[in-house]
Design a protein around this nucleic acid. Structure first.
Length: 603
RNA sequence: GGCGCCAUCGUCUAGCGGUUAGGACGCCGGCCUCUCAAGCCGGUAACACGGGUUCGAUCCCCGUUGGCGCUACCA
């Protein structure tokens, strides 16, 4: 790919040019120094480098077809689902809303079971909400159409791809419940599923395009191009590759080759217009005059992204491509390349980007939270899935709880908004609490077990009694928790004697006059009471409060602080009962000591 | 700069020519109550702007503004 340093320098200059004639907004964006691969959901990534060592070669899955072109096979089959644009009625092209109305047309296509959909993450970072949403929508499209969902790992950036990221992506993906039909670990007929293992496919196809005149060699160096680009910019003209090398005669070409000039392979963009019916955006039309003769292969022979994706999607029989809207502008190019290869382009759907609460595009660099992070914080996959499904999609604007299987039934790409959506952590949290509440107690208990273990509050093995007690705790604590981690926090004083007395609680409650009398009075009664059921305890406390001529609250609150260390807890009668007499008495004693010390110090 | 996409409460959204512009999160208030929650009830808050078209525009068209994307031998 030439000298990377030189290339960067050239690109820096190009960027500078943009900057000079940019609008303020554009300038801000450029100055933010965006790294394209960090933008939200790039569903596809770097092109393969021939000879790249395969980092993720799975010994279980020999790479069946990494050499030579096998494009013909899948190309001829599995594409019957594509409806040529011309076949769509005129009405389909009268705007986004019209596209919605004609949604059934898309359905017809997607229902033809040969639907194959892919999600193509690159293991250069964790899966974040934006990427997860792209994956979810793809999965939903496949499941809804009874088709296949394939996972393709775009791991050709050897510098930044790591096995750790790969594993994390697979794990998070699985955690969300998005089972893939083909891909890493499960294999499939259209493999390999690691792009780094597919590099052999591209060369022969490039040769073929060259022979057919659909592509040509270009000997212009980056410097020369940059010069002409600058000249155009200064003259206020827009720049597009001038096709200087397209008209090269055979002898000229031979001379340049003899000179040893490096060359890239450019796609020869045909005249005309490309129109495609985007499953989300509706009809999109682009005049080829707007398109550059883009580079398909660099001077070192490595294919570029736009070529690789097309080839991979075609050879894997992908029928529908759903990806971030940052790829919208690439789509016409990819359609043209697909056609030049003799293939039928997939149907496209471009999702608006997901923004952070600050309205900035979600990116790894900007610290977008990984799906795994939510898992660790005690979010439920059901809640995360439900929430991201609602980012840009709605069923009727009223219903908002959807499980995966309900989503399969209801999801419809044509109801996805074309507008970027900012994600709201507050609402995600709320949604998580809702799902948590709906979980039956035994299951809620199961789910929080790992959290309790990590906190060292329960052992690996639970006796039946421990288990029963745990469920009772979970049930008692329920409405106060928004995440599994919350439950752990709130269950702490039930499971450990090592409770911490909050300074504020102690000052506010235990230092009040009369507290010692209350503690002593209840200590005696709790020692004597028959049984330790909530009902008995309630009766005891109420009658004590009456005797003392105090409100129940005045009596309960000191006890609460005494046994939990804080001022907030589930109902006190149930809490005391579950804690057990011994623990309660012990903690009352402890609290009395604290109260005595503090009161002594105060007076 | 060129091209493309987008524009309803702070946020996620419903709306598809006639609505008191609906729902949800958040926020505020009330009820409940042994605390904190939860729950229930109520409130707050929006059609970016300007032109058309029309008897009538949130809705259709054009423009402006703004946001985002693409415009690389990046993906």
């Amino acid at each position: 790919m030439g000298d990377p340093v030189r290339r960067d320098r050239v690109h820096a200059r190009v960027r500078q040019k943009y900057l000079e004639r940019a609008t303020p907004a554009t300038r801000r964006r450029i100055t933010r120094e965006r790294r394209s691969d960090e933008v939200e959901h790039r569903s596809s990534h770097r092109p393969g480098l021939p000879g790249t060592l395969n980092r993720y070669v799975d010994p279980q899955v020999p790479c069946q077809r990494s050499q030579g072109s096998h494009l013909d096979m899948p190309l001829e089959e599995g594409y019957s689902t594509h409806v040529p644009q011309a076949a769509l009625p005129r009405a389909a092209f009268s705007g986004r809303r019209a596209a919605r109305r004609t949604g059934h047309l898309l359905d017809e296509r997607t229902n033809m079971s040969a639907t194959r959909v892919r999600f193509a993450p690159s293991p250069t970072g964790y899966l974040h909400l934006g990427g997860a949403r792209t994956a979810l929508f793809n999965w939903l499209l496949a499941r809804g159409a009874g088709g296949k969902y394939v996972l393709r790992i775009e791991d050709t950036d050897r510098e930044r791809s790591t096995d750790e990221f790969l594993q994390a992506i697979l794990e998070d993906h699985r955690w969300l419940g998005l089972v893939w039909d083909e891909g890493p670990e499960v294999g499939g007929d259209a493999g390999p599923y690691f792009q780094s293992e597919r590099t052999g496919t591209y060369g022969p196809l490039l040769e073929k395009m060259l022979e057919e005149g659909k592509a040509y060699r270009c000997y212009c160096s980056p410097e020369e191009l940059e010069e002409r680009r600058s000249a155009a910019a200064e003259g206020g003209r827009e720049w597009r590759y001038d096709r200087r090398c397209l008209s090269l005669g055979d002898d000229e070409r031979a001379a340049l080759e003899a000179e040893g000039r490096p060359s890239v392979i450019r796609f020869r963009v045909p005249d005309g217009k490309t129109r495609f019916d985007d499953m989300v955006l509706g009809p999109v039309e682009v005049d080829h005059a707007e398109l550059d003769d883009l580079v398909l292969a660099r001077s070192d022979g490595s294919p570029t992204y736009n070529f690789v994706v097309v080839v991979d999607d075609l050879s894997m029989g992908v029928t529908h491509v759903v990806r971030g809207s940052d790829h919208t502008s690439n789509t016409p190019k990819q359609i043209l390349i697909a056609k030049a290869l003799g293939g039928t382009p997939p149907t496209f759907g471009h999702l608006p980007l997901v923004l952070g609460p600050d309205k900035q595009v979600l990116s790894k660099r900007r610290g977008a939270l990984a799906v795994g992070e939510y898992r660790r914080q005690g979010y439920l996959p059901e809640a995360v899935v439900n929430y991201i499904a609602l980012l840009g999609w709605s069923y009727d604007g009223e219903s908002e709880f959807f499980a995966l299987d309900e989503l399969i039934e209801r999801f419809d790409l044509s109801r996805v908004s074309g507008k970027a959506a900012a994600f709201d952590p507050e609402k995600l949290l709320w949604m998580n609490a809702q799902w948590l509440k709906r979980l039956p107690v035994p299951e809620r208990t199961d789910r929080m077990l790992p959290f309790l273990r990590r906190a060292g509050l329960v052992g690996e093995q639970l006796s039946d009694e421990e288990r029963a007690r745990l469920e009772a705790i979970v049930e008692l604590v329920d409405d106060r928790a928004k995440t599994l981690a919350d439950i752990v926090e709130q269950a702490g004083y039930f499971l450990s004697d090592d409770i911490e007395y909050e300074e504020k609680a102690v000052n506010k409650v235990l230092t009040k006059p009369g507290v010692i009398t209350i503690i002593d009075g209840l200590y005696t009664r709790l020692t004597e009471v028959q049984g330790f059921e909530p009902g008995a305890i309630e009766g005891l406390i109420r009658s004590f409060a009456e005797e003392q001529e105090l409100g129940v609250g005045k009596v309960v609150q000191p006890i609460r602080v005494a046994v939990t260390g804080g001022t907030a807890s589930p109902g006190m009668f149930e809490t005391l009962s579950l804690l057990g007499r011994e623990t309660v008495l012990e903690r009352l004693t402890r609290a009395r000591k604290i109260a005595t010390e503090r009161q002594g110090a105060d007076s």
